[in-house]
């Protein structure tokens, strides 16, 4: 796997914390996200460990000393029964679907490599996850739940939604981040306001 080089290495969206780009309601919400990572309340310890192992493969963060937490926010959402506002009729209820998935990848890991998912190395973990995405994972836990639908529409969607809601991810992709009340002035291509991530070629220069 080729190395990943984030395009705006010198940019930190949090440096704008005390500027007119951030207001009190935003500071409150982001502070909470950064300082109060939810504790385990929904999954059991094994499920919790398995989910961490899954998220670590979906969005690997070998470059970070402190990876953006993903699994805790999934646990929190399930604990609070927080729906997105709908459920596909063919899918089991949210709580049930996540448990089936975690059990299912353990069964597939056992069938393939004779050990639970958390005990697999990264390549084998990826192979199990790819099997789920292709509806080819072994195991009875899945029942009639469509593996690919769960993988892409629930698991992956949820993980990506949590990761890209974190300031570290905003900085990584050069997103301006919170922008109230100041907003932006320069809207045309290749122009930026002084409070936006510097252009790559400015870096090179």
């Amino acid at each position: 796997m080729s190395r990943f080089q984030p395009p705006y290495p010198g940019y930190d969206v949090l440096a704008k914390w005390d500027t007119p780009s951030w207001n009190d309601p935003t500071r409150r919400v982001v502070a909470e996200r950064l300082t109060r990572v939810p504790e385990r309340r929904f999954f059991d310890p094994h499920e919790w460990a398995t989910l961490h192992a899954v998220c670590d493969r979906l969005i690997p963060q070998p470059d970070r000393l402190e990876p953006v937490p993903i699994a805790p926010f999934i646990d929190d959402k399930l604990h609070r029964h927080q729906s997105d506002g709908w459920r596909e009729e063919s899918m089991p209820r949210m709580e049930d679907a996540w448990r089936r998935f975690l059990k299912g990848i353990d069964e597939a890991a056992q069938a393939r490599y004779g050990r639970p998912f958390v005990d697999l190395g990264p390549e084998w973990r990826d192979l199990v996850l790819r099997a789920v995405q292709k509806r080819e994972a072994e195991g009875g836990a899945w029942g009639d739940m469509d593996q690919k639908t769960f993988f892409e529409k629930s698991l992956l969607r949820e993980a990506a939604g949590i990761y890209y809601a974190h300031p570290a991810a905003w900085s990584e992709i050069g997103f301006g981040g919170p922008a109230s009340p100041r907003g932006y002035v320069r809207l045309v291509a290749d122009r930026r306001d002084p409070w936006e991530a510097p252009l790559e070629r400015e870096d090179e220069a």
Partner: peptide
């Protein structure tokens, strides 16, 4: 997903 996701999002 994986590193490819972070690369594409960048």
């Amino acid at each position: 997903w994986g590193m490819e996701l972070r690369r594409r999002m960048a």
